Simulated assay, not measured.
Amino acid sequence: MRLLAGWLCLSLASVWLARRMWTLRSPLTRSLYMNMTSGLGWAGGGRRRQEEPPVVCVQQRETLRITPGCLCTQLYHSFVSSVFSQFMSRTSINGLLGRGSMFVFSPDQFQRLLKINPDWKTHRLLDLGAGDGEVTKIMSPHFEEIYATELSETMIWQLQKKKYRVLGKNEWQNTGFQYGIISCLNLLDRCDQPLTLLKDIRSVLEPTRGRVILALVLPFHSNVENIDGKWDKPSETLEIKG
């Protein structure tokens, strides 16, 4: 307990000092301050890959506000991440803490992407690698049945809390029915067999009206996150150049 209390006091003092230095309007102190706060988690999370932005980018104006409650929460998240990262993946830690969501598109942007109106509805959605389900929630009003896949147990827990039906890694291809929309957002660079995944998507997509919503993190780098947080190269190579 003494060690934790000392660590919290040191972190609080460091952020307070950096914030005071901010008033000097020095580019160096501003850079140090932003690096410090991003290390504590204020830079935001992500869907599938928290450290990189999605392909679909939307400009947003956000104000960083530091309050005692916010600061304590972020310090707690930082402490938990440091401890659990020894045996859990970053995705699972984010699922446990209820963070790690990434903005991909708004409801209006989703409708414009598919050229549909707000009342449009079809039968089935499959969201592959759905994370915590926040992007799934944007799409869900347009579907009667919503299915999702996810490998992280804590993210599965988040999906089940939202009442989505979670299918297993080798289950969604063998349900016996097809999907009107399949989303694969920032997943191809995180899976072990991207070529097989694309073939399986085609096999279960409605052949005439079905659509695939695909997003990639660029520049494209393939790495597979293991359950213990370590990264490996995928067994299949997806060649993307330029």
Rank of each mutant, 00 (worst) to 15 (best):
P194W: 07
T23A: 10
T196I: 06
N174V: 09
G180W: 05
T91R: 04
I116A: 04
G69M: 11
G41F: 01
L128I: 09
R202T: 12
P207I: 08
N117I: 04
C9D: 05
E52P: 00
V204G: 05
L238M: 07
S92V: 00
E153D: 07
V204R: 05
Y179E: 12
G95P: 03
D232T: 14
G168H: 11
E62I: 14
P234R: 05
S81D: 11
W231P: 00
V224H: 05
F177T: 07
L114A: 09
T91F: 01
T122L: 05
I181A: 03
F220T: 08
E153M: 03
T149G: 12
F84P: 00
P194F: 10
L40Y: 03
S235N: 06
G46H: 00
E171A: 09
L113H: 05
G44I: 14
I181P: 00
T196D: 11
L17F: 07
L32W: 13
L205D: 04
V56M: 14
G41I: 00
S81A: 14
D127K: 02
I182H: 05
R112D: 10
V80L: 07
G45Y: 00
H123Q: 09
T73V: 07
Y164E: 02
D228N: 14
W22P: 00
E171M: 04
C191I: 15
R61E: 02
Q193I: 04
F84V: 11
G242K: 12
V212T: 13
Q74G: 08
K161S: 08
S78F: 10
M139K: 02
Y147K: 05
G229L: 09
S101H: 12
L167Y: 09
E144L: 06
L113I: 12
D232Q: 12
I138F: 06
R211M: 08
N35A: 13
N186K: 10
K199R: 15
T29C: 14
Y179T: 00
S38E: 04
I66A: 10
F84K: 08
Y179F: 15
Q60K: 10
G131Q: 02
D228Q: 05
W16M: 06
P107A: 03
M21I: 13
Q109L: 15
L185N: 00
Y164D: 00
K169A: 10
D108Q: 12
L28R: 14
I146S: 06
A130Y: 01
S11L: 13
L64A: 08
Y147R: 03
N186D: 15
K230E: 08
T122P: 04
T175N: 06
A148L: 03
V83L: 11
L198I: 02
M34D: 09
P107V: 03
V135I: 13
T67L: 08
L195T: 01
C191R: 05
